[in-house]
């Protein structure tokens, strides 16, 4: 393997890993919109909360896995509580009010984070058994934790695919995004679906923050960064489409990674240029239905 090829391979791995992580956040966003008709600006805040939660719990328990095992149920509870208190009154209301309320929620969650964990930048230790690098070529290596991260995200994506494709809940979710009456005629409580979907979205975003923490730093603005990039993913993939979110996330991850190498001056812009191109080509996104939204 030449140096150039090894370097290229590493960048591809980086881009795919970034994309897969992004998929965990964006899939929740697209599901919550596609099924519940809710646009949730606070979705990125759950990613941020997940990271801070796992930072705090990992320093307390000393082990990442224990921290995640405690934090995920907490995220689910948070999701259920928020759905009941704040999101439920928004069903059927104009997107405007959803934007307004969830924007307020961002501010509140931001300050709760500040009060509970402070405003410092933190790092979370990589678990010992993954704390090594895989040598590719002389000076070029790839951290094992990042590979593990990609594998974990892929496993979760696979589980979601199975859930949506083969379970009764998944059937209701698929029907729910196209036909509410049909869900009811299946004898499934739509309110229950909403609760589950929202909590699932929160849990996925938080989990993404948790497993990303050891690979990057934990910092106050991380949630907003990921939110906006997730929007780009959802727009590219087509609103409400999980398949679209998956492909969109990979495209965005790769575009971002390679943008940083080839156009460093404008690296922040690459993904938006990608989005503009997709919009010109297919206004409803790659897998969007025309007229959705």
């Amino acid at each position: 393997m030449s140096d150039g090829l090894a370097f290229f391979l590493i960048q591809v791995l980086n881009g795919v890993q970034e994309g897969l992580l992004l998929f965990l956040v964006a899939s929740g966003l697209t599901l919550v919109f596609g099924i519940m008709g809710i646009i949730n600006l606070a979705h990125g805040s759950f990613y941020m909360l997940g990271a801070y939660l796992v930072y705090a719990l990992a320093s307390f328990t000393g082990d990442l896995w224990t921290a995640i095992l405690i934090a995920v149920p907490l995220a689910i509870v948070l999701g259920l509580a928020l759905e009941a208190l704040l999101i439920r009154p928004l069903y059927g209301r104009d997107h405007l009010y959803q934007v307004l309320l969830t924007y307020g929620l961002i501010l509140v969650l931001e300050e709760i984070r500040s009060l509970l964990f402070g405003d410092d930048v933190h790092g979370v230790a990589v678990p010992a058994f993954l704390d090594f690098s895989i040598p590719l070529k002389d000076a070029l290596t790839y951290p094992a934790y990042r590979l593990f991260l990609s594998a974990l995200c892929l496993a979760i994506a696979g589980a979601m695919w199975w859930l949506i494709r083969y379970t009764r809940l998944g059937m209701a979710i698929r029907a729910g995004s196209t036909n509410r009456e049909m869900v009811q005629s299946l004898g499934i409580d739509i309110a229950w679906i909403y609760r589950v979907v929202f909590a699932l979205g929160v849990a996925l975003a938080a989990l993404a923050g948790m497993i990303a923490a050891p690979a990057a730093s934990v910092f106050p603005g991380m949630g907003n960064d990921v939110l906006i990039v997730s929007f780009v993913v959802v727009v590219i993939g087509g609103i409400g489409s999980i398949k679209g979110a998956f492909l969109g996330a990979l495209l965005v991850g790769l575009a971002d990674t390679f943008g940083q190498i080839y156009v460093p001056q404008l690296s922040g812009m690459t993904i938006y240029v990608l989005m503009a191109a997709v919009l010109l080509w297919r206004p409803a996104g790659l897998f969007g239905r025309a007229g959705a939204g």
């Binding site: 929007f231 959802v234 727009v235 609103i239 989005m275």
Partner: peptide, 24 residues
């Protein structure tokens, strides 16, 4: 070209594009 909720997201994304242009 976008409408409804995707208009919200797309306008946000274009503003961010300018934001990153200025940053760079």
């Amino acid at each position: 070209r976008a409408s409804g909720v995707s208009f919200i997201m797309v306008t946000l994304a274009f503003a961010q594009m300018l934001f990153y242009y200025v940053i760079g």
